[in-house]
Amino acid sequence: MKVLIRTVAETGSTNADLLAEAAAGAAEGTWLRAERQTLGRGRAGRIWNSPPGNLYASTIVRLRAGEPPAPSLALVAGVALDDVASAYAGCMAISLKWPNDLMTGSAKIAGILLERAGEAVVIGMGVNLAEAPAGLDRPTASIHSLCGSAPDAHAFLLDLAAAFKRWLGRWRAEGLAPVRSQWLARAHPLGTAVSVGGREGLFEGLDQDGALLIRYADGSGETVRAGDVFLL
C-alpha cells in the first residue's frame, strides 16, 4: 500500500472530502490533513471543534474479501494512534476507551470516526496536540496542556500513517486477534466502572469481533456493538 499525504489549509471535513474521493476511485493509503476544519464532526453527528494546531486527518481503506469485520478498523486506528501519541507524550499516561477514544485519565485527547461508502471505509482521526476544545459534554486535554509543548501536526501524521499501515497489515495477515490483544493491553483495566446508554456496569473486555463486553450488578451481561461509553 502506497501512502499519499496531502495537506490543505482549510476544509469543511476531511472525512467528507475523502468519502467523495473514495466514491470517485481514490486509492487506499490516501491521507488528507486539514490545518483547520469548519464542519468537523464526531460520532453520532456531533460537532468536532477544530482549534488551530491540532491534528485533523482522514485516510481510506479499501475492504477485501475475507477480512475481519469492518467496524474493527476502529481498533486498528486506536492501537496505531496510541503507539504514536504515547511516543510523543511520554509525560502522560494514555489509555484506549471503546469504541474510538484516546484518554488520559478521564479526559479525552483524541477521537476516531469511521464512515463507509461501498467497499471503502474512511477513518478520521482528531488529536488534541496544541489545544483542548472547550464546551463539550466531557473533559478534554491536550498534549501541550499536560506536557508543555505540542508536537508538529505534520510530523505526527507521518508517524501515524506508518503505524496505521503496519497495524492494518497485521489485521489483514493475522486477523483481528493481535490488534484486539494490543488494544486490551492499552485500554483501561478490566473491571473499570463504565456507563453505557445510561446504565452502569463493569468493563469485561472485548469479544472476538471487537464488540464491548459489559457485566451489570444483577449479574447479567451485554455485548455492545455501538453506543457511547463513559468512564465512571
Rank of each mutant, 00 (worst) to 15 (best):
K2C: 09
K2F: 10
K2E: 15
R6H: 15
A9K: 12
E10C: 15
T11W: 09
S13E: 07
T14F: 08
N15Y: 12
D17H: 12
L19G: 13
A23M: 03
A23C: 03
A24I: 00
G29A: 06
W31A: 09
W31Y: 14
L32F: 02
R33P: 05
R33G: 11
A34P: 07
E35P: 00
R36F: 01
Q37T: 07
T38W: 03
G40C: 02
R41C: 00
R41P: 00
R41T: 01
G42D: 04
A44N: 01
S50I: 01
S50Q: 00
P51K: 07
P51R: 03
N54F: 05
N54P: 02
N54S: 03
L55P: 13
A57I: 03
A57D: 11
S58L: 08
T59A: 13
T59K: 12
I60R: 11
I60V: 09
R64S: 12
R64Y: 06
A65N: 03
E67F: 02
E67T: 01
P68Q: 05
P68I: 07
P71H: 02
S72V: 07
S72L: 05
L73Y: 02
L73T: 00
L75T: 06
L75N: 04
A80P: 09
D83V: 11
V84K: 07
A85S: 15
A89Q: 14
M92E: 15
S95W: 14
P99D: 13
N100T: 04
N100Y: 03
N100Q: 02
D101I: 06
M103R: 05
S106C: 02
S106T: 10
I109W: 10
A110M: 00
E115P: 06
A117S: 04
A117V: 04
A117R: 10
A117E: 02
A120D: 06
A120C: 07
I123W: 08
I123C: 09
M125C: 13
V127E: 04
N128G: 07
L129H: 08
A130E: 11
A130S: 08
A130G: 05
E131W: 06
A132K: 01
L136A: 12
L136D: 11
L136H: 12
R138D: 00
P139F: 08
S142W: 05
H144V: 00
H144M: 02
S145K: 11
S145H: 10
C147A: 08
C147N: 09
S149T: 13
S149Q: 12
A153F: 02
A155P: 00
F156R: 01
D159E: 04
A162I: 04
A162L: 05
A163Q: 00
K165H: 08
R166V: 03
W171P: 11
A173N: 12
A173P: 02
L176E: 10
L176F: 14
A177P: 03
P178W: 12
P178S: 13
Q182D: 15
W183F: 12
L184M: 15
R186L: 05
R186H: 13
A187T: 04
H188N: 08
H188Q: 14
P189S: 13
P189Q: 09
L190P: 09
L190R: 13
G191Y: 06
T192W: 11
A193K: 08
S195Q: 09
S195E: 13
V196A: 10
V196K: 04
E200G: 07
E204Q: 14
G205T: 07
A211F: 14
L212F: 12
L212E: 09
Y216G: 15
E222N: 14
V224G: 14
R225P: 10
A226C: 14
A226W: 13
G227L: 08
L232V: 06
